[in-house]
Amino acid sequence: MLRYVIRRLLWLIPVLLCVSLLIYVLMDLAPGTVIDSMITEQMTPEDIEKLRQEYDLDKPVIYRYVKYMWGFFHGDLGKSQVTGLSVWDSFISRFPATLKLSLVSVVFGAVLAIPIGIFAAQRAGTIWDNLTTGFTLIGTSMPSFWLGLLLLILFAYKIQLFPAGGYQGPSSYVLPAITSGLMMTAITARQTRSSMLEVLRADYLRTARAKGVPERLVIRRHALKNAWIPILTTIGMGLSRFLAGSAVIETVFSWPGIGRLTVEAVSQRDVTLACGCVIMTSILYVIILLIVDLLYAFVDPRIRGKYASGSRKRKVTA
């Protein structure tokens, strides 16, 4: 198990090298550099040249990249080129906002999605199933900025029930959480439905019913537990995507999180900050998917057995 975790974490290294190189090259290809947004009317050419040298802009992009990654592998995410503040501090100061919204969205999404998915699966082929399928179809295909704006117009403008943006108080979570959660609800509900449908046909549910297990326990204890893995995967993917900070949702709702930080960094050509954000979110992404993988073992003893077999041979009796 431990070896598995370490192997997965080692995979982070090439992943990080790739995403950071990608960021560096893409931002280098974009017109303009970080100092272009700093130039003021009173600057002399010498000032500008000094700035260029300070940011190594007179050297090739690969030099800056290697320099940055050298620092990174020595535990230094660097300093924002625009503000001069530590990238790590900037990231950490913004992370709580994104984390809180992500958790609320995931909980909202999952709490709604799993019952909906089970409901639809149990009534497969009926009008109820069609309704939920319709709902998931809308949920997955609706662009989130559009849904966000619709909700804003309805609940912040017409009814004035929730704030139109910002990050204070529980009420400010409602609209962004619904907007991001709904997409996740739709995807998770669909996954739950198909995964439950598969399980509902399984022989062991017939065994359970033949034992006289009440229907709700058949679903909860016997079916859901077997359907968990794909559902968990969807939820985990959703969470890691939220944690990377949804630029769209954070922009629509003025949410001061990682998504906004990254967008601003890119628009100001702040390569170190953008790269730091992307590296951190990649790390989070990989770690969350790893946790989900480890949760598989928790949910499914067969997988647990597979992890264990590496260290200890199980007796299999014929």
Binding site: A30, P31, G32, T33, V34, D36, S37, I39, S267, Q268, R269
Partner: peptide
């Protein structure tokens, strides 16, 4: 383009 693009 965008503002940094103009400068560049």
């Amino acid at each position: 383009t965008d503002p940094p693009g103009i400068s560049a």
